[in-house]
Design a binder for these strands. Structure first.
Lengths: 220, 220
DNA sequence: ATTACTAGCACTCGAGTAG
DNA sequence: TCTACTCGAGTGCTAGTAA
């Protein structure tokens, strides 16, 4: 990753705001970045090639759409700085309890995962996940959490198929210790999966549709 | 500022930890950064020249001391990301009420400042400052706050001398709205000055030596 | 082992300019 | 006006090597 592209992404995201859409000419970007118009133009082309942005030219002006990959990069940088500067943060998110479909249970119970949970999380998880649909206003916090390095649970193979790696984050809900688990390769969903050594639905008296707060605890 | 130097500073600060001292050879830094040993060596020389680090060579190994200028850079980047990503933060710091010496009163009362306070902070400050010595464990938070862009109060001249610009941050102490004020040019002191439209010592029943919490409110 | 100089090469930048 | 191509110049890289 070229460092100049990072600076350009910052400029563009700053302009784009929460809609992630910016209208800017190459010479204007050039001026903001302190480079020539030609270089700015080349940077935009590179950003498109690397899928950090999408661009259309409408009525002689460029419409730049910031892509997930670019936001990922910015949040990753933010997390890296948190980590380097040893800034401890706790993030709160709010969401709605979802019907779990029993899929979680299938995955959690796999020996390949379970053994690692016991070893790395120092607990034996209840065989099932609590699924929470995070409210849209917490989208950015979720993105930041997802971009952080968690406790890595490696992928594995069994007779039938391959299971991908996941990463876990320390969290708590209403004082009950739990872990958020995400696929290691980032997937953009607003539904998070929570595991704990307790049956969370029971311990917290939850039913589908309940609104709850989840706190993610980072320590570097 | 070269972007490569920024990456190098991150690597070095990461290694250095809170003591801001790292022992690392140029080839090790080269490996971490994915460049040649020669380039890493040159980077270190540039960092020294630009006063981001200090270096001594003891018993064949380099001792690298991270300088304030480098920390400034990292915190500034962090703040820039906060701003770009519209992350609102509130920072809490703890400190001890200090004897103010009446200096604050002299400055605050200057028309050049007072007019701007009224206009930009939309309040008429009590003519005096509450000085708080921040506890060392909040040093990094203080650094981060100081590195942020606040509400700018421009410097001015009167008949006798020049008064430098200051920047203000929204804050509150025990629910009372106030502002932190810092000289615009960063100075490394652990004493902060607080102004408010109220006489804070009275409103909060404070005396020298009292320990209080200050919350700085950022909004981007 | 280190650090860091010199030489040469590669890559990135901006000027000129086309579409 | 815009964007973006080509090309020459200069920066910054690595390899070789000295200390």
């Amino acid at each position: 990753m070229n460092e100049t592209l990072y600076s350009a992404i910052k400029e563009l995201k700053n302009l784009a705001g929460s809609k992630n859409i910016a209208y800017i000419s190459s010479s204007e970007l050039a001026r903001k970045m302190g480079v020539s118009q030609q270089t700015a133009s080349r940077i935009i082309l590179e950003l498109i090639k690397e899928k950090y942005i999408d661009r259309t030219i409408e009525n002689r002006r460029q419409k730049i759409m910031i892509q997930e990959k670019a936001l990922d990069l910015l949040y990753r940088e933010l997390n890296e700085l948190y980590s380097i500067l040893k800034i401890n943060q706790s993030f709160e998110m709010e969401g709605t309890v979802q019907n779990g479909l029993g899929e979680g249970k299938y995955y959690i119970s796999k020996k390949g995962y379970m053994d690692q949970f016991k070893e790395k999380l120092k607990m034996e998880p209840f065989p099932g996940t609590l699924n929470i649909k995070i409210n849209p206003e917490y989208e950015n916090i979720l993105r930041q959490v997802r971009g952080a390095d968690g406790i890595i649970i490696s992928g594995f193979k069994d007779r039938e198929r391959t299971f991908g790696g996941v990463k876990c984050f320390n969290a708590h809900i209403d004082g009950i210790k739990c872990y958020l688990i995400f696929p290691e390769r980032s997937v953009y969903t607003d539904i998070i999966e929570v595991i704990s050594d307790k049956y969370l639905r029971q311990a917290l008296s939850l039913k589908d549709g309940d609104i709850i707060k989840v706190n993610v605890d980072f320590e570097f």
